[in-house]
Simulated scan of single mutants.
Amino acid sequence: MAAPDKIRIVLVDDQALIRKGLRYILDLQPDMEVAGEASTGEEGVELARRTSPDLVLMDIRMPGLTGIEATRSIAETLPDTRVVLLTTFDVENYVFDGIRAGASGYLLKDLNTEEMLAGLRAMHRGATLFNSTTAKKALAQLVSPPPGAEEGGFPDDPLLEPLTERETEVLQLLAYGKRNAEISALLHISEGTTKTHIHHIIQKLGALDRTQAVVIGIRRKLVL
């Protein structure tokens, strides 16, 4: 059984050699443990649901259920599990789709070992990491005001309903990468109440998920 302070990671990649190499590296780390491996998106979703890992390293291009689709499924059912897209392809559309699906990170497979491990530890602490030139450019576009918008506002895209003070606090903590349990502890509310606030935030911002809600919140300057 894993030590309670270990970062539990699931590997999802259709190439056995990639999974073997990642497992070898991760199992050498005193603060990490591989909770399981999957070779397809479908298997990855099922494995994540069974093991509730801290992180999922997800390949994007796989036969059947793609990594983006699998990420969306995991994000919807396991909000405290963070999905990191790991890919050979530095493609802008993958970044956009990954963010919208709920991914917390986007790393290239040619990243050196030290940078990858540092990135995974940072994401486990709550950071969001899109570690490639294309990914950073795509993320910058997402948080930039749309063409024609007035500085600091979005007159053509009004809020469906203003956020309450508490909802703004929750959104701020989401932007910091805090998980539901952490938000509950910091605000001294139950996890059920936290989930309700997040649901209301997503609805009011017209977002598809919590990640998109954060992006919209940054664009609207609702969070710092």
Rank of each mutant, 00 (worst) to 15 (best):
D5G: 04
L11Q: 01
L11N: 01
D13R: 00
A16N: 13
A16Q: 12
R19Q: 13
L22W: 00
D27E: 15
L28G: 14
Q29I: 11
A35G: 03
E37G: 10
S39T: 15
G44V: 07
R49I: 15
T51C: 01
D54Q: 11
M58C: 05
R61P: 01
M62R: 02
P63H: 11
P63K: 02
A70S: 09
S73Q: 13
S73V: 12
A75H: 12
T88G: 14
F96I: 10
D97I: 14
G98W: 03
R100T: 07
G102C: 02
L108E: 04
D110K: 06
E114C: 11
M116E: 05
M116R: 02
L117F: 09
A118S: 14
A118E: 13
G119Q: 05
A122H: 05
H124T: 10
R125N: 12
N131C: 10
S132P: 02
T133M: 14
T134N: 01
K136A: 14
K137V: 15
L139A: 14
S144C: 09
A149M: 11
E151I: 14
D156K: 03
P162F: 07
L163K: 03
E167G: 06
L171A: 04
L173R: 02
L173C: 03
L173E: 12
Y176W: 09
G177M: 03
L186Q: 10
T193D: 09
T194R: 00
T194C: 12
H197M: 13
H197R: 07
I198P: 11
I201V: 11
I202R: 00
G206A: 04
R210W: 08
I216D: 04
I216L: 13
K221N: 10
V223S: 12
V223Q: 02
